[in-house]
Design a protein around this nucleic acid. Structure first.
Length: 438
DNA sequence: TCTGGGGTCCTAGGACCC
DNA sequence: TCTGGGGTCCTAGGACCC
């Protein structure tokens, strides 16, 4: 009995209203007003201050549906500035590493990290310490949830954020209140149980997280999938999702955009897709990767399926890996010609790279190996120049400077921080783990 | 007029081989 | 003219997350 080994506690540190909070730190006037941050194209709302949440504005709501309400409440409406958020993300992680001394840390997203909290006897103090220290050093408010598994830590964090009593910190590690918390939680609010799964579970009488906890894992696997059955175990305090401490390289890298206006002509579409290709290759080479498979897609407007919603997509599999712009332009061109249909009004397109490996691990080519190496090094040089002197100072002749496909971002403020954007290619050298932007 | 972008993992079903 | 079954790989699509 005395030898029962306890699992380590997992703490989830999650920044509150992260993008909106960052905007407030750099512009304290915004503390006096509600704040929303908009996606690319100013299309939808991707971050809300507490006041906006209280107005009932949901996450990822289209701006136009709530614009009047927001303006009536004098809301600051701001276009996203990913460079800024990236910078703040760094600051928060640095505090966790340097000031908190988190030895095992998994960067889960731009505003969240799991930390292995060991088996301490003073967990509530740890949670409070983390929250206070991060706020003191960065002015970013965070919530901390602590539990035996990631799924429970996620839940603890969610409750910590909402509950006035918890005040941003909740320890469910060995807490007698776990079941009570689970009984009060709708099953769809569990991490990994989305709306579709919630409907399925409700249909078989499972409405709360507690009812899911009591379910037979195999039965849940039948209704959902194996991730569902793991969730059951996690709710029972049995860890199935381990901490991913080590560096992870991306399995895919993409650049996709909705156009400012619909496009019909192949030339126009090609221009946009080449531009996207340039951006995605920039990201790829920044991460020191090469690709073998490119996918290009172009869709019409899904909200106006006239005459019908067309989703064109083609994947090109090359024999060789490459990071050479001219080669990959050729692959992209093949894809584009396969998917293009005259007369369609394209609203969105993108380029996705998969089969990514380090250029050092690329097998030798039977032919043209030396040419490839020359081009590979030339590409590196061009990236270097563009990094130093500005994006696309050196660019392919087929790449236009500016196209009608570009959307709008009218709610920009604080332009000095937008300069950071160039350093932020989505994934970074110093940022060891993949970071997904919202 | 207006409805994002970047990821991951899982599964069912088809192609193909023996 | 009859007509198997098992294994593997690949792909498209679904679901989820931030």
């Amino acid at each position: 009995m005395a030898n029962v080994r306890k699992n380590n506690a997992i703490a989830l540190v999650d920044c509150n209203n992260f993008y909106a909070s960052c905007e407030r730190v750099v512009n304290p006037e915004l503390y006096k007003r509600p704040v929303v941050v908009l996606s690319h194209n100013d299309g939808i709302i991707i971050s809300r201050s507490n006041e906006v949440k209280a107005l009932g504005v949901p996450m990822t709501a289209p701006l136009f549906q709530y614009r009047d309400l927001l303006e009536r409440h004098n809301t600051a409406i701001i276009s996203a500035n990913h460079g800024l958020y990236y910078e703040f993300s760094h600051r928060v992680i640095d505090v966790l590493n340097d000031d908190i001394g988190a030895n095992k840390l998994e960067l889960y997203s731009i505003d969240e990290a799991f930390i292995d909290a060991g088996v301490p006897d003073k967990l509530p103090f740890l949670g409070r310490h983390i929250k206070n220290t991060i706020f003191e050093k960065t002015k970013i408010p965070v919530s901390v949830g602590i539990a035996t598994t990631k799924t429970l830590a996620k839940l603890a964090n969610k409750i910590a954020k909402k509950s006035a009593k918890a005040d941003g910190v909740l320890d469910l590690y060995n807490s007698p209140h776990i079941d009570l918390a689970l009984k009060k939680t709708a099953v769809g609010n569990i991490w990994g149980i989305g709306p579709r799964s919630a409907v399925k579970l409700n249909a078989v009488g499972i409405k709360t997280a507690y009812e899911l906890k009591l379910s037979e894992p195999d039965r849940i696997r039948m209704h959902l999938n194996q991730f569902g059955s793991r969730t059951v175990l996690e709710l029972n305090g049995i860890p199935c999702l381990s901490m991913e401490i080590s560096e992870r390289t991306n399995k895919s890298i993409a650049h996709t955009r909705t156009f400012g206006h619909p496009m019909t002509e192949l030339d126009e579409l090609r221009e946009a897709v080449y531009y996207f290709t340039t951006r995605v290759l920039e990201k790829m080479r920044w991460n020191n990767l090469a690709t073998k498979t490119v996918e290009v897609f172009a869709n019409t407007d899904r909200f106006k399926p006239v005459p019908y919603y067309y989703k064109g997509k083609h994947t090109y599999h090359s024999v060789y890996h490459s990071d050479v712009t001219s080669e990959i332009y050729a692959w992209v061109t093949i894809c584009l010609e396969k998917i293009y249909r005259p007369g369609m009004k394209y609203r969105k397109a993108g380029v996705v790279l998969t089969d990514l490996v380090s250029p050092d691990d690329v097998p030798y080519r039977l032919f043209d190996q030396r040419k490839f190496e020359r081009q590979h090094h030339l590409g590196k040089l061009i990236d270097e120049v563009n990094y130093r002197y500005g994006r696309d100072v050196v660019r392919s002749a087929s790449l236009k400077e500016k196209g009608g496909w570009q959307g709008k971002s009218e709610h920009r403020g604080n332009d000095s921080y937008h300069a950071i954007g160039r350093d932020v290619l989505g994934l970074g050298k110093t940022y060891s783990k993949s970071v997904r932007f919202l």
